[in-house]
Nucleic acid binder design. Structure first.
Lengths: 312, 312
DNA sequence: TATAGCTGTTGCCGAAACGGCAGCAACATG
DNA sequence: CATGTTGCTGCCGTTTCGGCAACAGCTATA
């Protein structure tokens, strides 16, 4: 099913790899063929699409415009293929997800497992990265669905859902604060804390609040792994700060206690956004999973708010 | 700028004309070339795209899926072209509008004239038709922007705005009812009325209300032209029913009086929707006009509601 | 019922486009 | 300075595209 000019596929490959020869390798054609298609494209558009450097090619402004169009075409072609396939009963395809680390403990594995048990021929590709990288991966067409801390998102992305979860402190069961129902930032800073590095979005959520306080946190540990921070907190090394998306797991082996964070009397929220490329219609099977994801996150949001309502 | 396979353009032409030879004529190529491209497409998709009749070709289910994809591609190509052109300062293109008749008296001509005076190189194509035809023209890609009575719209269209205007009776200045501020349907039916034929959406707005009444309207005139109905009302032939979108014109040569309609004590609304193909990003100059259109209709909605607030 | 006009399809053939190979110059890295 | 990388370009065989003419099937008209 290759009814599109090879030029646009070659262009797409060159944009992704940043090199004509590398693109040619992934396409299994000679580099000269790729080079000529790019030159032909530039001639027809009437303007260079790439800037040539000794290392390879980078997009020009017009090139980025074409990249946007080409991505629209190729993604819509995927959707068309899926539509035709599902017409003959074959509900299969790949859902590619880019998300931040907080989802990996329970939300995503639970959902994927459940979905796979129903639709066995839908495969998944998941990649964990920082919030801004999630948005970038979506823009570049390297993921279908993105889950990230809700920052200001570029206009070519669409926020299909926004769920808010309480930010909280993770402390070991033996920790002096463990008996409390909620904690404030000030109370926490009296103890050793595990700070998130700037590459984690928790850093950007807490930094402005810490800056407002007079005291500076006692230096303990800085880390860039949610998982590592959790394990450190469990060993009593310090207090970690996270959004609480793993209630089930926590209650199972109750080594850790989650304490919702209060600031100036009100909860500290962490907004989780689900994103999709705006100029795109998702294949049916992807859309189906997306709806389940939204529903599940909404469910967890509701459950958490219920659990901590008396602490608000 | 023809970097897409000729196959999809040929397919698009065949779908529009419903015939290979006709498509070939509009494309200035031999019909055999078109025929072969269609056959090649069908081979690559693995399923027939058209049903062959003696009169020509009609789309199969798979064909309609491909038509959707091809339309997405071609419309996005148009947008890309416009984007590139506007990069070099050339802000030009064509805006194609499909709308119902109520807009032709003042809204559309005013807006187009104003827009043309600012952006002289943006041309317009306007076509007047019934509400359901407006939606169909959008779906078929024959118009960029559609304005119609807000019915249930198909999922492949997006309602970008919804404005409500009061439905009212148009009577000549000398008409016995002309002095009233509002009228009810019952009051009107005591006089000769000009009924809209089912092809006009006013028919579908009024019919359920008339059906609720015990008395049947006095037969007078049935018509399918908003303009004709207005002129007949001005000559005292009967009462016409319309949405009031021409305040300015009416106050200028006050031959006619517009009486907001009341039914069971509450106003009768006529919802006007602005539609766009859902799977599409509009070119910048089209989007610009669309925003002006929404603003203008919102403005008129506001003004009318103000003018008749005391009658509500 | 015969005819004229329409439909899509197919063989044939020249022209255009595509792609592979090998070699070029320019630049980066060691 | 040597080596490896980059993109680009003649040369040439293969594939694809498109035009012409002819064919079979259907419809409407005389």
């Amino acid at each position: 099913m290759r009814f599109h000019s090879p030029a646009i596929q070659y262009f797409h490959a060159v944009r992704r790899t940043g090199s004509i020869r590398a693109a040619a390798r992934t396409l299994n054609v000679a580099s000269s063929a790729v080079s000529r298609q790019i030159l032909k494209l530039e001639q027809e558009v009437g303007s260079p699409l790439f800037e040539r450097t000794a290392r390879g090619l980078t997009l020009t402004t017009v090139g980025e415009m074409l990249a946007r169009h080409v991505m629209n075409v190729l993604q819509d072609l995927d959707r068309f293929r899926a539509d035709v396939a599902s017409l003959s009963g074959a509900w299969h395809g790949n859902v590619s997800i880019a998300c931040i680390e907080s989802l990996t403990e329970s939300v995503l594995p639970d959902l994927i497992a459940a979905h796979r048990s129903r639709a066995r021929r839908v495969s998944f590709t998941t990649e964990v990265m920082g919030s801004s990288d999630v948005l970038e991966a979506l823009r570049r067409g390297e993921a279908d669905i993105g889950i990230a801390i809700a920052l200001r998102h570029p206009p070519d992305l669409r926020q299909v859902a926004l769920k808010r979860f309480r930010l909280g402190a993770l402390v070991a069961r033996e920790h002096p604060l463990a008996r409390r129902k909620t904690v404030t930032l000030e109370q926490c800073l009296a103890f050793p804390v595990i700070q998130a590095l700037p590459e984690l979005s928790i850093y950007h959520l807490l930094q402005p609040l810490i800056a407002q306080l007079s005291e500076t946190p006692e230096p303990a540990i800085q880390a860039n792994s949610i998982d590592l921070m959790r394990e450190l907190a469990a060993r009593g090394v310090g207090i970690a700060f996270q959004t609480q998306l793993g209630i089930i797991r926590l209650s199972r082996d109750a080594q850790l206690v989650f304490l919702p964070l209060d600031n100036a009397g009100s909860p500290v929220w962490s907004d989780l956004g689900i994103y999709v490329r705006a100029e795109r219609t998702l294949p049916a099977f992807t859309e189906s999973f997306l709806q389940e994801l939204i529903r599940e996150l909404g469910e967890r949001e509701r459950r958490e708010n219920e659990a901590y309502r008396h602490t608000a």
